[in-house]
């Protein structure tokens, strides 16, 4: 390590930061591979829950309740063992082997199922909060349902749900810490918790390794807040600014 960082030859802290950079990418991967699938799925679930059809609404309700009401830790174990029991390891989609049971596949899969339930609840709340007068106005000028959705419901829903959704993304990112507690580690594909644990087992320096791992989580969380804040600003750009909206670290504590 001293070749890479000649100026800090003995700083264990800096060495840890370097060692844990690659594992951090795994956490980032798990979170950001889940969002592109989890978000659209959550929108569908929220619309289903809001549906006037009793059956559709009930299906979405049960799904959301089940996934919000049980630990992700158990969900990981359950889906992994389900896939093992049904011999999905022999399934080769598009002729590609060893993909279905790979943690880099199952990890995001379960995270998508989990986060979409939480996000759907947030989006559903926002959907119910869409201003009624705007909906009536859309009806009055003769918009059909699709037009109403596109120009009234959707923009309002996203804008209202955004702060809570940011919070959910942070929770999702933090949830990636338990992926490798439940799934097998292949080669040196380790995430922050794993690698910190491995380093800990070598020298029992719990304060150093776990602090650096925590620092990574903290810094990446801050970056997510920053980017989400910029998007939040853009979503509200039509609004008259009452007081300056800051991009400070303002975590919400509810999930």
């Amino acid at each position: 390590m001293s070749e890479i960082l000649p100026s800090f030859p003995n700083s264990a802290f800096v060495q840890d930061i370097v060692i844990l950079a690659k594992p951090a990418l795994f956490n980032i991967y798990f979170a950001f591979a889940s969002i592109p699938f989890g978000f659209p799925f959550a929108v569908v679930l929220a619309l289903m829950k809001n549906s006037s059809s009793g059956l559709v609404s009930r299906i979405a309700r049960v799904y959301i309740y089940a996934f919000r009401g049980s630990p992700l830790f158990i969900q990981f174990f359950m889906f992994y063992s389900l896939m093992l029991a049904f011999n999905l390891s022999h399934w080769k989609p598009m002729g590609i082997d060893h993909i279905v049971m790979h943690p880099l596949f199952i990890g995001p899969l379960v995270l998508v199922l989990n986060t979409s339930a939480y996000a759907a609840e947030i989006l559903y709340g926002a959907l119910r909060a869409v201003p009624h007068l705007e909906l009536e106005a859309a009806k009055a000028i003769g918009m059909n349902r699709l037009q109403t959705f596109r120009s009234v419901v959707w923009p309002n829903m996203i804008r209202l749900a955004w702060p809570a959704y940011t919070n959910e993304v942070i929770f999702l990112f933090h949830a990636t810490a338990i992926v490798y507690f439940t799934l097998p580690v292949i080669n040196d594909e380790k995430d922050l918790m794993n690698k910190a644990g491995e380093l800990f087992e070598k020298d029992y320096n719990v304060f150093l390794h776990f602090s650096v791992a925590a620092l990574y989580f903290l810094v990446i969380s801050l970056m997510i807040f920053f980017v989400a804040g910029l998007i939040q600003k853009r979503l509200n750009r039509h609004k008259v600014p009452t007081d300056r909206q800051s991009l400070s670290y303002k975590p919400t504590f509810l999930r």
Binding site: H174, A177, M193, G197, V206, S221, P251
Partner: peptide, 21 residues
């Protein structure tokens, strides 16, 4: 703020180890 920025599982693992040491 600290606790909220760090995954719960990290603290749940860290605290007993740190206390023991």
């Amino acid at each position: 703020t600290m606790v909220r920025g760090i995954p719960d599982v990290l603290i749940i693992l860290f605290f007993p180890l740190a206390f023991e040491q």
